[in-house]
Write a protein that binds this DNA or RNA. Structure first.
Lengths: 265, 265
DNA sequence: GACTATATGTTAGGTAGCGCACGGAGCATC
DNA sequence: GATGCTCCGTGCGCTACCTAACATATAGTC
């Protein structure tokens, strides 16, 4: 569906918030990359040189342990970007991103972003502002893991995810959600089954649809609303500018799956 | 003990890493404030105008729920500062700080820090670099809560705390640790009792002493080492400069307890 | 239409951590 | 030295979540 319509850079709110002047400097260096479901970002060294701006995709930032188990830290959609570590410090390990809803993202060479960042103007302020929302997400996530049930966490997860998409359908299996949240598949199945009985969601073989947001919100913990409020504040902060015209000439690069032989430079 | 020796600004590594030029600009605006055990930072509105640089105190950043329960996000000692939210975004709610080891901190008016930050020079780079370590701590903390036992989390906690002090003694009750970690007092008692039997720590009536770090490290999860490595990288990053001389003229302000009538302007 | 892989349902048993309650031991105050 | 308070030990029932194994249903493939 999204394969036909090529997303514009302006679909990402950070990119859209840049003044035409900055857009003229940066947009010629943008590359459009497709993000297939379950793809990993920042697992391959070639990607370390890029900052990603999702347009219609959804990526969760994951923290990993040595045994492979992981836990979601936050969710990034078209309101943000991947690679905040890169401008906080020169050398760093980026956080692994896991594509939880397929789509596209624009990416910029880290060097270009750094140059723009060092001008100490709007892009820097936007990125710092966005860093704040990430910290809020990670913090609230931590306290949610400590104090709330898996069912509540699933509600929060579904709400945050669909907030960042234009539709209420999530193409993901219970197994995959379990990996993202760092819990068993069975726990997700049980919670999802319960939510379905209550008429909040429907699901079948890897496709979850939110049919009643208000029911989900009623069952979610306050953690969702804290994150939601912070996300709304960010959107209110982002100014809207006119569109920089020349965005159709941007090439589309294809990202390899893990274990794939396609390497991106 | 620390009441007699007045700590120098240079005991804070961020302040010490500033060049004499910047120190000359900032240090005249420093205030020394004592941080008593269990004091809250950023609970009172008057404190919102300050950024805190601990010298010999230890402060944990807490995330709170509406019912009052909380969870530790990270620990700040003389390697860092409180108030990173203030320069990430203009308007924000700061994270509550809970003094877990009494001592002193220097504080600067937020406005002065902002001015210096906007010069886009060393202080900004230091603060961004430090923000990265905070994000690492919060992230690792989240995955630790999800996947590891309270005993392991206690080990991590004791190790991180004593890393940031010059001595292995922590003046805190099981109850207080429970509040900080967001678990029951009994769970802490059980874990602590176990650690004491194994000869890793000793404790009595609100005073915990680490007697065998290697045993603690053996029982701690990898989360401790991830945070430790990041903290070491930060210290290696901080340059050492000569001391700006005029630091004895700095006044000492006294911070009121919660519910106290002493209000600071 | 048969086969296979994937996605979800279900069950049984184990355990970590919780809420609650109570008891004892150290320390201070008068 | 009696009282009271803080700090810690301990036991019990309960629940959420886990490990593990197996059953079933759906979609895709040949």
């Amino acid at each position: 569906m999204t394969d036909i319509l090529k997303p514009k850079p302006q679909h990402n709110h950070i990119l859209a918030a840049l003044t035409p002047d900055v857009q003229r400097r940066l947009f010629p260096h943008l590359e459009l990359v497709p993000l297939p479901l379950r793809a990993s970002i920042y697992d391959r060294k070639s990607e370390l040189e890029y900052v990603y701006f999702p347009t219609d995709s959804l990526v969760s930032l994951q923290c990993q342990l040595q045994d492979g188990s992981s836990t979601a830290l936050s969710v990034v959609g078209n309101e943000g970007l991947l690679g905040i570590n890169f401008f906080l410090t020169e050398v760093c390990e980026p956080t692994r991103g896991l594509v939880q809803s397929p789509g596209y993202a624009y990416r910029l060479p880290r060097r270009r972003v750094r140059e723009e960042f060092d001008r100490h103007c709007e892009l820097m302020l936007l990125m710092l502002r966005y860093t704040q929302t990430i910290i809020t997400q990670v913090s609230q996530n931590a306290i949610c893991i400590r104090h709330h049930s898996i069912k509540q966490q699933l509600c929060r997860w579904l709400l945050i995810s669909t907030d960042r998409l234009s539709h209420p359908r999530l193409k993901m299996t219970h197994e995959f959600i379990g990996v993202m949240l760092g819990v068993r598949r069975e726990s997700i199945s049980e919670a999802a089954s319960n939510l379905q009985q209550l008429g909040a969601i429907t699901y079948s073989r890897g496709l979850i649809e939110v049919v009643d947001r208000t029911k989900l919100e009623a069952m979610a913990c306050e953690c969702y609303f804290v994150v939601k409020k912070e996300a709304d504040l960010l959107l209110a902060y982002l100014p809207q500018h006119q569109v920089f015209p020349d965005t159709d000439a941007i090439p589309v690069h294809h990202l390899g799956q893990a274990g794939d032989s396609t390497v991106i430079q």
